[in-house]
């Protein structure tokens, strides 16, 4: 077990030490204390390590993560796990705006609420939010799955591409070109698996969710859709 005091040792030293492990395969456990809302904690990792941050983080925690499993025992600031490639990021508290933005793979679990633009422009990541999500979530989401146990804010899935959105609670409003879709057996199966991965199988059942996706009306320009642009 490696313990790192962020306040005493500094961000550059932390990320440099973690990058020194990139490409290695030996699993190691890391603990980071005193994060105090600092930005860019554990960004650019590329090794199957287990890292726990004790406290709340600032912008871009776990940005562009590959392979690593990063747990935040607190809340996370804007751009949590942005552009994640693989691995997992699990936050006990809330996440600020842009959680999982542009993520291309891996699993993001937020046990509290996520703020606005959760999963914006997501490209393959799976996101499981135990609480609610804010407005403009999954804006221009391209692929991957967003699972929300609570409610969604305004303009969910605006200008959506092929990402799948599953919401258990209410949706304040749907964005342009986002529609409710039929929940088929394969979706229930997928959702059951995502709930399990997202440490939420004891909290919700797949049948309680509705599925939302792209109506695909904006896929090729048509003047009759001009008001949606």
């Amino acid at each position: 077990m490696q313990k790192f005091d962020l306040e005493a040792q500094g961000l550059r030293a932390l990320n440099a030490a973690l990058h020194a492990l990139n490409g290695q395969t030996n699993e190691t456990a890391w603990e980071v204390v005193n994060p105090k809302g600092s930005h860019s904690i554990a960004v650019g990792l590329d090794a199957p390590i287990e890292l726990t941050v004790h406290g709340s983080t600032g912008y871009y925690c776990a940005g562009m993560n590959k392979q690593a499993t990063i747990r935040v025992k607190g809340s996370a600031g804007p751009g949590l796990a942005e552009n994640m490639m693989s691995g997992a990021v699990i936050v006990d508290g809330n996440a600020s705006q842009y959680a999982g933005a542009t993520g291309r793979g891996g699993l993001l679990v937020i046990k509290g609420d996520a703020s606005s633009r959760c999963g914006v422009s997501m490209k393959g990541i799976n996101i499981v939010v135990h609480g609610n999500i804010g407005h403009m979530s999954a804006f221009m989401a391209q692929s991957g799955n967003l699972v929300v146990l609570g409610d969604a804010g305004d303009a969910l899935g605006d200008s959506l591409y092929e990402a799948r959105l599953f919401v258990r609670g209410s949706v304040k409003s749907l964005g342009a070109d986002c529609v409710e879709k039929e929940m088929r057996p394969e979706h229930l199966e997928l959702l059951a698996d995502l709930l399990k991965q997202g440490e939420a199988e004891h909290l919700a059942k797949p049948e309680e969710f509705k599925r939302y996706g792209s109506a695909r009306n904006l896929y090729n320009f048509n003047i009759d859709n001009a008001s949606a642009y």
């Binding site: 105090k36 709340s56 809340s75 600031g77």
Partner: peptide
């Protein structure tokens, strides 16, 4: 503007 600004307040945790 950021959570960082709040971390030293009493009982913030």
């Amino acid at each position: 503007s950021e959570y960082r600004a709040l971390v030293s307040l009493p009982g913030i945790d």
